[in-house]
């Protein structure tokens, strides 16, 4: 549904988005990750046609967002960053305005408003002025606006920003649910959301895509992925470390609070490594408290690929001394 090719946006000398290419199909929920200022919002603004690209092309549902702006915009529901709305309107007034702008009228309009009010839990504040609402309600009011015409494409810029944990949970579920029938792109800082809602994630840094894959694939890029951690009662960690280092498939062994972690030479050998460690434990008579294969951590992947090289070195050094 969304097709982006070689998208570039420059602001003066700064290349905010620098050659981004990706596609999102119906039924996909794409998480858009990246540090602040990486170009997430700028990319989303170009998808929704708010700002024109410097070069490159975006099509939504086959319509070029510059050439056939109106046709593309009709397909898109957009929640801008910071979820703006008109503070002098009531929630109902605002949603009614959004429905009018989307060309909904009569019964269809009433139904649409009823549907989004229910989806976004706005019934209790429906006739309140937006300026009197808490941040969470304001946010959901703007989200409701994005859903009012039941769009095929949803572009959500930080949809869970400013929500409490329960609301975050609800919104993530909502996004996952909507993703079954729509193409969804949403940006976030929160890495758990990738697991909770995405079918695929893209990490963008300084205007470029630095990683693109399913949450499991991204996690697999972690150094930790495939490592086996062992906790054993009464065993001497130093001795355990030596024994584990003796296994052929083990590249190196590290001490972690109260246990020992063995990193494989090759990530594919993960299952074998766990079995080898278990056999070793039986032979040595270790009383195992826990033995697990690490899946890898998204935040480690995220940090490793988005930190500038110098900071990466410092980070690694800090990790080594710790």
């Amino acid at each position: 549904m969304i097709n982006i090719q070689n998208l570039v946006k420059t602001f003066g000398p700064k290349r905010a988005v620098d050659g981004v290419t990706f596609a999102v199909a119906r039924g996909e929920v794409l998480g858009f990750l990246g540090p602040n200022g990486a170009g997430k919002s700028t990319t989303m603004r170009m998808i929704t046609g708010f700002i024109p690209p410097t070069s490159g092309r975006v099509t939504v549902g086959g319509h070029d967002v510059v050439e056939e702006a109106l046709a593309a915009k009709r397909l898109i529901g957009y929640l801008p960053e910071a979820a703006p709305s008109y503070p002098d309107m009531t929630v109902h007034g605002f949603l009614s305005f959004a429905a009018d702008m989307r060309g909904l009228a009569g019964d269809a309009k009433l139904k649409a408003i009823g549907r989004v009010v229910e989806l976004c839990f706005l019934a209790s504040v429906l006739h309140q002025g937006i300026d009197t609402l808490s941040k969470g309600y304001k946010h959901r009011t703007c989200l409701a606006q994005a859903l009012i015409h039941d769009p095929d494409v949803l572009v959500l810029d930080e949809p869970t920003d400013g929500l409490d944990p329960n609301q975050k949970h609800e919104v993530r579920n909502l996004i996952r649910e909507l993703g079954r029938t729509k193409a969804v792109v949403f940006s976030t800082h929160i890495l758990e959301e990738v697991d909770a809602a995405c079918t695929r994630a893209i990490i963008i840094d300084r205007g470029r895509i630095v990683a693109n894959g399913t949450p499991d694939e991204l996690r697999g890029m972690s150094e930790l992925a495939g490592a086996v951690t062992v906790h054993a009662a009464g065993a001497d960690p130093v001795a355990m470390q030596d024994k584990l280092a003796g296994i052929a498939a083990v590249a190196r062994v590290e001490r972690v609070n109260g246990g020992v972690r063995a990193f494989p030479r090759e990530k594919r050998a993960a299952g074998e490594l766990a079995r080898a460690v278990a056999e070793l434990a039986t032979r040595e008579g270790w009383r195992l408290d826990a033995l697990r294969t690490e899946e890898g951590q998204l935040d480690e992947v995220f940090r490793r690929i988005t930190l500038p090289d110098t900071a990466k070195g410092a980070d690694a050094a800090a990790g080594a001394t710790a």
Binding site: R45, F50, K73, R74, Y78, E81, P87, M101, R102, C142
Partner: peptide
């Protein structure tokens, strides 16, 4: 200032 411009101009209007 309030950011609603982004909302207004991403509705299907010229």
């Amino acid at each position: 200032r309030s950011g609603t411009l982004e909302l207004l101009l991403t509705f299907p209007v010229a």
